[in-house]
Design a protein around this nucleic acid. Structure first.
Lengths: 340, 340
DNA sequence: GTGAAAGCGCTAACAT
DNA sequence: ATGTTAGCGCTTTCAC
């Protein structure tokens, strides 16, 4: 293992001072062309790489973004993450990732560990437990220290920071209106994420759409829970009756289980039952029949979040105005809703 | 935005020297109990957090692992990643992530950027393009600088470093033997990843299993490609003939397309056709019928990789022995292979 | 055009 | 038991 190449070392080898070498490498006009070339070539030859920690310490910024994600196994978050990563890299930022696993403690711990000069700011989606407990103290603490936060998808109303969300309310409303247009009379709402802000917003959109077309929200057409076991049992009962001819499913588990149970019950999709779900596009296409989904443009959410954070980081003066960007969703019609 | 709390500041406030404060906070025996308590309480009160960059610079280590992943949207990699993240955090390491997007250039760039004292070592799975070009110079360069690398899943034979792989050869061999035991006569091999090392190993396992039971490898039962379009077209032709009664699919696209095309052709699964695929477990269960898969224990792969890297990082002397850990796979029988 | 020196925040060997 | 000092690698102001 050869010794690390440092400015000092180059300076010694070349019989120059550290500061001259530093300036030469940053192409300063203070340095003569001959020396400049000489230094630069020697550095290249030695494969010199400036030490990031030293630079960070000096500059008081790390060019690193802390990303906290509830669950990377959820394709939605994986996609948002890839958007963040891409946008951040493009602007010269690194990304440190923590997975909260929906745990409030882990989320807090991650922010604590990273706010010690490891990252310049945070992009995060609030852990389930944090939403349930409604504890926002760790966010506020970080903000008080002057470190910016951008929240996406799962946000908290009483935290003042930039946010990137999709219009959950409107998109599920549109989806239900689409089902109505297709002629569905008995549209069920299926949710395993009733403990999340997004789940609640989507449920409200469903109700609004029904009321707008003078229909009632019928209890026997609702499954709102946060337990998959509970959900599965109730779903089987619901579909056994055969009374349902339209479904809006608010999450991946609900969407795919609806498909599965319907197929097992011999219900023809989309002839007898139309299904629209919030789910991953790639896998929805792989199902038979393919599942119509509400596309949330996850990568764009990530890119926008990164853009907002970096903007704040690179603006000279502190901006105390907070933006909430709404990313438009799109209904992707596939075979689970196409009427013949 | 209040000023950052530093040792210096605490020292001034308390009328002590910086080193006394430093020692008091690290609970040194050199410091008297009274001062120790006083300092510690004041630090807590002020919410002091030691600056990570400064500590890193001083210690010449960052407690950070660089992870480079070809594609986080692939559930396999997402799962390995979550394993790495978990194991790393548990040992007090941060994780900086880059997504190579299968690009050789991005992979190289990531290693370049992070090897400048940003991370202590790397965990990575080789980008497709790198495997095709067979360029290992960037790996060797990093290793020469004394920074350890652990490769997982997609490795390169001529790079000397720790590796974590699954036994691709053996697991596809076992899968084919299982199909044979189920009575399949014409077992097809479907692969969209014929450009990857793992794809090639799996294909060899298929051939071995056939030869072991005195069968021939028949060209019309093989689809080996790296293009999904090409694959889809050839798959439709193959299944239209009805000659296939068993399938081993080497990747997610191949697995799910096989299911889809079979269902569309009215082929009964598993009665007329048994399918085993390399695919995500959660989604495989969601398909109807559910898909039998080869489980690769992705999280364990990640945990093992992190364990190996940290071991190397924390060992005093340089270890020049390189381990290759093989994680056992498991055949998960689901409805696509269950004979009635 | 080049160099000396201070300092980013922390640690630790070495005084006192 | 507490303080002084040097130094991690780099940038930058200020001298020469």
């Amino acid at each position: 293992m050869k010794p690390k190449i440092t400015l000092k070392l180059i300076a010694k080898d070349l019989g120059l001072s550290v500061s001259t070498v530093s300036k030469a490498l940053s192409d300063s006009h203070e340095i003569g062309d001959v020396t400049k070339i000489r230094v630069q070539e020697y550095a290249k030859l030695q494969n010199y790489k400036p030490n990031t920690m030293a630079k960070n310490l000096k500059n008081q910024r790390t060019n690193t973004i802390g990303v906290i994600i509830p669950n990377i196994l959820n394709p939605f978050f994986a996609k948002v993450f890839s958007g963040i990563e891409k946008a951040a890299n493009a602007k010269g930022y690194n990304v440190i990732t923590y997975i909260s696993n929906e745990s409030h403690k882990k989320e807090k711990q991650a922010m604590d560990l990273l706010s010690n000069g490891t990252v310049d700011g945070f992009i995060l989606s609030v852990a389930q437990e944090t939403q349930t407990l409604h504890d926002t103290s760790h966010f506020k603490e970080i903000l008080r220290e002057g470190m910016p936060i951008v929240m996406f998808d799962r946000t908290m109303d009483d935290v003042s920071c930039d946010k990137v969300v999709v219009d959950d309310f409107e998109s599920s409303m549109e989806a239900v209106k689409h089902l109505i247009k297709l002629g569905c009379k008995n549209i069920a709402l299926l949710s395993c994420i009733d403990n999340l802000s997004v789940g609640k917003h989507r449920a409200l959109g469903y109700e609004k759409a029904l009321r707008d077309s003078k229909r009632n929200v019928e209890d026997h057409l609702l499954i709102k829970t946060d337990s998959e076991e509970d959900f599965d049992a109730r779903l089987k009962t619901m579909l056994a009756t055969g009374a349902v001819d339209g479904i809006l499913a608010l999450d991946e588990h609900a969407s795919t289980m609806a498909m599965k149970v319907a197929i097992q019950n011999g219900i023809k999709i989309p002839e007898q039952l139309c299904i629209i779900g919030f789910a991953d596009g790639v896998w929805s296409r792989r199902l038979t029949p393919s599942l119509s989904t509400i596309s949330q443009h996850a990568p764009e959410i990530g890119e926008e979040a990164a853009k907002l954070l970096i903007e704040k980081l690179e603006s000279k003066q502190e901006i105390h105005a907070y933006k909430t960007t709404v990313i438009k969703t799109e209904l992707r019609q596939r075979d689970s809703t196409r009427r013949v």
